[in-house]
Design a protein around this nucleic acid. Structure first.
Length: 827
RNA sequence: GCCUCGGUACUCCAACGGUAGAGAGGGCAGUCUCAAACACUGCAUAGUGUCGGUUCGAAUCCGACUCGGGGCACCA
């Protein structure tokens, strides 16, 4: 038996590794994804993937995210759009610094090496990025504009410095923004966060709280509802009233914030945040000063984790002072407790234990009175221990008696305002964004501290304020910025008075870098400005943003904030940076997140080596809805390889020549083709990529059958089907489809072949199956014309022997007919 | 505790209020082979978390419950 004979039994496949090597240089040369050529008349589409942090090579998570983003970008290119699909690197940050410390090398070297590795991997992964638009945030040409933007915010009063108790990560040895503390732990390293009093730089994002909240109406239906909800929660707007209470023995009144001014008559005590200045002031000189100080020490030692425990008993100290309720003159004992937060509202509250659970818990712990002022019909809170928050008629409340909640709130607000005792107010959970970091590998804050002139902006012509060379600096975290040790760098003359002054030694939170990077891609090589107005007007806002839900609050909120600030500065014409958002899920293994320590890590490089790029991309896209997690143990890359080979073999079977007139082809197969193209396109546009792939698979099956036992390989419809398969497959499997395209007699690049146009007349089926129901139960099926009338279908149904038999002797009450799909006879 | 998304066959997942099964994985059988793998063909898996409601008709809409994921959680 000769080798030639055996080959007949071994089905042909293609050499994945060879094909990958074959096409890359061709694509480099053709640059099918270059955007913004001057004569480009196609309408624009900005498709953006969240840029990666360069920590080592790409992993499975990247492979999923970039596969999905690529399907979208390639789809719009096929649909005739001028797509900008850029990539860059979010290259500042702690991992580089930690790696540098460990290996005693410059973080810059580590970072740029990793970027080179990732970039090469992305190219091999066939990402449709426009490589002429890339940049890294650690390039001085980029972070210079971070500094410029900082100074603009400084000018506007939106960047300011204040001393405050801040979140401190003892492991990272740096401060953290509120958003970076998750359940009391450092977002990055899961270390318990402590508090530290420090003078730090902030961005005044709270000035934009209302707009960040209200403008979300524009994003409704375009962003995942989940993300919008998370942002709303995070901003946490509440409406209520500020009310002034006199304090016995103090000239100045104290203002409290409440969301329930209607319950003012139900206040039975008054609580100050124990760590507030006012609590210390009121405790001073009283008999309980010692006790108060001891309490203060105790709560300072408590971590955020302790504070967040839900079953934590209430604690506090009675200050032996009294506040006067402005509406009824009652004396309310003043307590200091840690259940009131110093930095929310005014750090002081009126306690209404009957209608607030926290106040009730405190009242019960301290044996303080409870007075019901809203009749909700529920049981007495002082008995049940459950505060009643519902609506009802007010009681024990003077002029408010009998009014329902909303009316009472309006009434009391008006009265307080009239009497000068208070007014309606809003509060937010959102705090200003702390941007200083005590680390090396970030953007230096361009401020010079002068003993005479104070905080002075670095002159614009001195930008970028470059990082001092890492060589010779001790980068080990020690709680103060490593930049402080670079004395030559730190000591500069004051730009205002020329006297000796010092640079700010902190660097910026890397979220500053990522808050505007999407504005830079369109004019990434313009080093005279942060971004060119013209290019931004052309390309922005981003039409489609793709990234993980982990950034639902941090990055997306900050980017929206920056966009609004830049809009107000007249630099942007739009308010919201990302028109549409897709959050992809994570890649997990056997139900849990992949990690080295868990021992369930799947290496992307291994998967690519075993199955090839296309099969991995296909597996990611086909695994399920994009927003769901992919469990790698559920997917079969081998199955993807099998399918790609099946599709590829079709391209070798076609015997007609390119350009053949499809309209002469077999109608049945043509219908299958046009339906698949129509449905797959619709599925892609609605992010149901797995369904789009299923439609392609169906067409592959139909084409296989048609070629083997139907119209045959020479029929024009066979070519039409296989060309459509190749083009649709090009979104997911670029190598395979390019190879198919060549075998079909076409020139590269298939990426620019154009999405097949759909002939609407071919979307109508020849016949459909109608069901006949009796009382909603299916009894028979009829093959009918899709254009059959209700009357005709009904007549056919009633005439059907089985139906007629079933109906014999029965009274027909009603017949529902929905031609051409069903008839339901109710008896 | 509050908010939110989800529960469909052995597995991953489809299904404008109208035939529960598109597609895939895994399984079995056949064709091919000396045999196996590949490939091709065929087959099976009666299953919409539970209870109720609306409807001629509910996986789909409504309510309650349950389980699972996610978010928020002393924010007055």
């Amino acid at each position: 038996m000769s080798a030639d004979n055996t080959r007949d039994f071994v089905h042909e496949g293609y050499d994945v590794a060879y094909v990958q090597e074959k096409w890359l240089p061709v694509w480099d040369q053709l640059a099918p994804f270059k955007s913004g050529r001057p004569d480009d008349k196609r309408p624009k589409k900005y498709v953006l993937d969240m840029f990666p942090y360069p920590s080592g090579d790409l992993h499975m998570g990247h492979a999923e995210a970039y596969a999905l983003g690529d399907v979208i970008a390639r789809y719009w290119v096929q649909k005739g759009f001028n797509v900008m699909h850029p990539i860059g690197w979010d290259a500042f940050g702690l991992p580089a610094e930690n790696a540098a410390i460990k290996r005693n090398i410059d973080p810059a070297i580590w970072t740029y090496e990793n970027i080179a590795v990732q970039k090469a991997s992305m190219r091999r992964y066939a990402c449709s990025f426009d490589w002429d638009r890339t940049f890294n945030t650690c390039d001085p040409e980029y972070y210079r504009w971070n500094q410029w933007l900082f100074l603009q915010l400084f000018e506007l009063g939106l960047a300011y410095r204040k001393a405050s108790k801040v979140n401190w990560c003892p492991s990272c040895q740096t401060v953290l923004a509120n958003e970076q503390v998750v359940a009391g732990l450092c977002e990055r390293c899961d270390t318990a966060v402590t508090k530290k009093k420090l003078t730090q730089w902030y961005f005044k994002i709270t000035d934009y709280a209302d707009r960040l909240l209200d403008d979300m109406s524009q994003l409704e239906g375009q962003w995942p509802e989940k993300v919008l909800t998370m942002q709303r929660n995070w901003i946490g707007r509440s409406t209520g009233a500020n009310v002034d209470f006199q304090i016995e023995g103090r000239a100045e009144p104290v203002t409290i914030y409440t969301t329930r001014p209607d319950t003012l008559y139900g206040a039975t005590f008054f609580v100050l945040a124990a760590d507030s200045d006012l609590a210390a002031e009121l405790a001073k000189g009283t008999g309980v000063e010692k006790e108060f100080n001891a309490y203060l020490e105790k709560i300072k030692a408590d971590s955020d984790i302790d504070r967040l425990a839900t079953d934590r008993p209430k604690s506090g100290v009675f200050l032996e002072r009294y506040a006067i309720n402005p509406v009824n003159g009652e004396k309310l004992p003043i307590w200091a407790s840690d259940y009131v937060l110093a930095d929310y509202g005014t750090g002081a509250i009126m306690a209404v234990p009957a209608h607030d659970q926290r106040d009730l818990d405190f009242a019960r712990a301290m044996k303080l009175p409870v007075r019901v002022v809203v009749e909700t019909g529920e049981e007495d809170p002082s008995v049940t221990g459950v505060a009643t928050a519902g609506d009802g008629a007010l009681v024990n409340s003077g002029p408010l008696n009998g009014k329902p909640k909303d009316e009472a709130i309006a009434f009391i607000n008006a009265q307080l305002e009239r009497d000068g005792l208070g007014k309606s107010a809003r509060n937010y959970r959102l705090r200003d964004w702390l941007i200083s970091r005590q680390r090396y590998w970030g953007t230096p804050i361009p401020i010079i501290h002068c003993p005479k002139c104070g905080d002075v902006a670095a002159p614009l012509d001195s930008l970028p304020v470059k990082l001092p060379n890492a060589e010779g600096l001790d980068l080990k975290p020690k709680g103060t910025s490593p930049l402080g040790a670079a004395t030559d760098w730190v000591n500069v003359p004051c730009p205002k008075c020329g006297g000796p002054a010092e640079r700010d030694t902190d660097t910026m939170d890397t979220f500053v870098d990522s808050s505007w990077y999407f504005l830079r891609y369109p004019s990434n090589t313009d080093h005279t400005q942060a971004f060119s107005r013209e290019s931004v007007d052309t390309w922005l806002p981003v039409d489609q943003y793709v990234g993980g839900v982990t950034h639902a609050i941090l990055h997306l909120l900050y980017s929206r904030f920056f966009t609004k600030v830049l809009h107000d500065m007249g630099m942007l014409s739009f308010n919201e940076p990302f028109t549409r958002l897709l959050n992809q899920g994570m890649v997990v293994m056997e139900g849990s997140a992949m990690s080295k320590s868990r021992g369930n890590l799947v290496k992307l490089s291994d998967e690519l080596a075993n199955h090839g790029v296309d099969a991995i991309r296909l597996s990611m896209v086909f695994s399920g809805p994009p927003e769901d997690d992919v469990d790698w143990s559920d997917v079969s890359p081998a199955g993807s390889v099998k399918f790609l080979n099946r599709a590829w073999r079709l391209s070798g079977d076609i015997t007609s020549a390119p350009g053949v007139d499809f309209s002469k082809g077999d109608v049945a197969l043509r219908k299958a083709t046009h339906k698949a193209v129509h449905d797959a396109g619709f599925a892609v546009e609605s992010f149901r990529f797995n369904v789009a792939v299923a439609r392609i698979m169906e067409l592959v099956n139909s084409a296989r059958k048609a070629i083997d036992s139907g119209c045959g390989p020479a029929d024009p419809a066979a070519r039409e089907a296989v060309e459509a398969i190749a083009i649709m497959l090009s979104l997911v499997a670029p190598y395979t489809s390019e190879e198919m395209w060549e075998r079909l007699g076409h020139k590269p690049a298939i990426a620019l072949a154009g999405w097949p146009s759909v002939d609407e007349t071919l979307l109508v089926a020849d016949s459909v199956v109608a069901v006949i129901q009796i009382n909603g139960k299916i009894k028979e099926r009829l093959e009918v014309s899709p254009t059959i009338s209700d009357a005709e279908l009904e007549a056919q149904a009633l005439a059907h022997p089985t139906i007629a038999k079933e109906l014999a002797g029965a009274t027909i009450n009603k017949i529902i007919t929905r031609a051409p799909k069903l008839v339901n006879i109710v008896i």
